[in-house]
Simulated assay, not measured.
Amino acid sequence: MTGGIGVPACVQCGTHSNPCRCKFVGPTLGFLAFVVTAIVEWPVGALVYCFRHTKGRRIMAHPAAVVYPCVSNKIPI
């Protein structure tokens, strides 16, 4: 039995940003950027949340609200 780690792949169909109407590279790189950012920002946000609730929530939401859409939308394929 062999085991391995699969490569995360995201596909977004129905988009109008390219002629194929499917995106593969942008969403996949967006997801990887989201994971890297979340590893750093979620613990920091949890610590800040103990003292400043609104600021902590904003820090923890940053990867999903800003990083993923920004990276995903910059790459049209």
Score class of each variant (00 low, 15 high):
5 I>S: 14
38 A>R: 06
1 M>L: 01
72 S>V: 01
62 H>Y: 14
14 G>Q: 11
70 C>N: 14
13 C>Q: 03
55 K>P: 10
7 V>C: 06
4 G>H: 03
44 V>P: 10
17 S>P: 03
19 P>L: 02
68 Y>C: 00
10 C>V: 11
35 V>K: 14
28 T>F: 11
39 I>P: 00
4 G>W: 01
68 Y>A: 00
42 W>R: 14
40 V>I: 13
13 C>Y: 08
37 T>G: 06
57 R>M: 12
56 G>P: 12
60 M>L: 15
21 R>D: 11
25 V>R: 12
32 L>V: 01
8 P>W: 07
17 S>G: 07
2 T>F: 01
21 R>M: 13
57 R>F: 11
15 T>K: 03
30 G>K: 08
41 E>M: 15
21 R>P: 12
17 S>C: 04
16 H>T: 14
77 I>F: 14
49 Y>P: 02
7 V>F: 09
27 P>T: 05
75 I>V: 08
45 G>K: 06
61 A>Y: 13
28 T>C: 02
15 T>R: 08
19 P>C: 03
74 K>S: 10
3 G>Q: 13
16 H>M: 13
35 V>A: 08
23 K>P: 01
49 Y>L: 07
30 G>R: 06
26 G>S: 03
14 G>D: 10
32 L>E: 13
21 R>E: 09
44 V>E: 07
33 A>D: 07
25 V>L: 12
39 I>A: 03
53 H>F: 07
4 G>F: 00
54 T>L: 10
66 V>R: 13
5 I>A: 10
64 A>W: 08
11 V>E: 06
50 C>M: 10
6 G>E: 15
16 H>F: 09
48 V>H: 11
74 K>G: 01
37 T>V: 03
3 G>S: 10
76 P>R: 04
68 Y>L: 05
20 C>N: 02
70 C>R: 13
51 F>W: 15
32 L>G: 11
16 H>Y: 13
17 S>L: 05
62 H>F: 11
72 S>M: 01
57 R>Q: 14
42 W>C: 06
69 P>L: 07
63 P>G: 12
41 E>I: 14
31 F>Q: 04
20 C>M: 09
15 T>A: 11
72 S>L: 01
59 I>M: 07
55 K>H: 14
11 V>M: 06
11 V>L: 11
29 L>T: 02
48 V>Y: 09
43 P>W: 12
63 P>D: 09
12 Q>A: 06
32 L>F: 05
5 I>G: 12
24 F>D: 00
57 R>G: 07
32 L>W: 05
23 K>N: 04
22 C>A: 03
41 E>D: 06
33 A>F: 09
42 W>F: 10
61 A>H: 14
40 V>H: 05
63 P>E: 10
55 K>V: 15
37 T>C: 09
35 V>G: 05
15 T>G: 08
27 P>S: 02
55 K>W: 15
14 G>N: 12
18 N>H: 08
76 P>L: 02
9 A>I: 05
27 P>M: 01
71 V>F: 01
